[in-house]
């Protein structure tokens, strides 16, 4: 999941470097991806709270990751009209402190859910449909898992 989810997030073309798991642990790439998904909801005021220069400071990373996670969950509830229930939320402490790839994968899964349900979902879904079948399959499974945990 984490490998395919990374491939997917790379298609967003965010400014921040996005090549390794380490690149994503600061939360900045994910915040920028959310902003691409919905610039009105994830506005400049929101993203200004995500600290850009975290270096190796895992406490700052965790702080950013918490904001991204809350943002994605609130977006699901307030804009997409769906409550994600019974889904094992990513452990941001493990991502920030230990660069845990599996937990990062779950975080990216939530962002994937935002992308394929937002106003601009056509663009994101069509991009996925142009990826390799093996990647599409993993993405499909990830979305299906999320959908099974959603309640309106």
């Amino acid at each position: 999941l984490e490998s395919c989810a990374m491939r997917h997030i790379q298609t967003f073309g965010v400014e921040a470097p996005c090549k390794t798991v380490e690149d994503l642990t600061s939360g900045i790439v994910m915040a920028q991806a959310l902003q691409k998904i919905d610039l009105v909801y994830f506005n400049d005021a929101w993203i200004s709270r995500v600290k850009p220069e975290v270096g190796d400071n895992w406490r700052l990373k965790i702080s950013n990751l918490k904001k991204v996670l809350k943002g994605a969950l609130d977006y699901n509830q307030e804009i997409l009209g769906q409550h994600i229930d019974d889904f094992t939320l990513p452990d941001v402490n493990l991502i920030g402190e230990h660069s845990d790839a599996a937990e990062l994968g779950r975080m990216l899964q939530l962002i994937l859910g935002c992308a394929v349900n937002c106003e601009q979902k056509q663009e994101y879904i069509q991009t996925i449909m142009m990826m390799e079948e093996s990647v599409q399959h993993v993405v499909m499974t990830a979305i299906q898992e999320l959908m099974s945990k959603e309640t309106p």
Binding site: E78, I79, L80, G81, C118, K121, Q122, Q136, I143, Q144
Partner: peptide
């Protein structure tokens, strides 16, 4: 060729799924 058939079936499953996502209505009411 069974491999080609399986590949085509898989493609169909993927296309159906993503097309269904495209036509799914989302958004909070009101």
């Amino acid at each position: 060729d069974p491999n080609m058939k399986a590949g085509a079936a898989n493609e169909g499953v993927l296309a159906n799924f993503f097309n269904s996502l495209l036509s799914k209505k989302t958004g909070a009411p009101g």
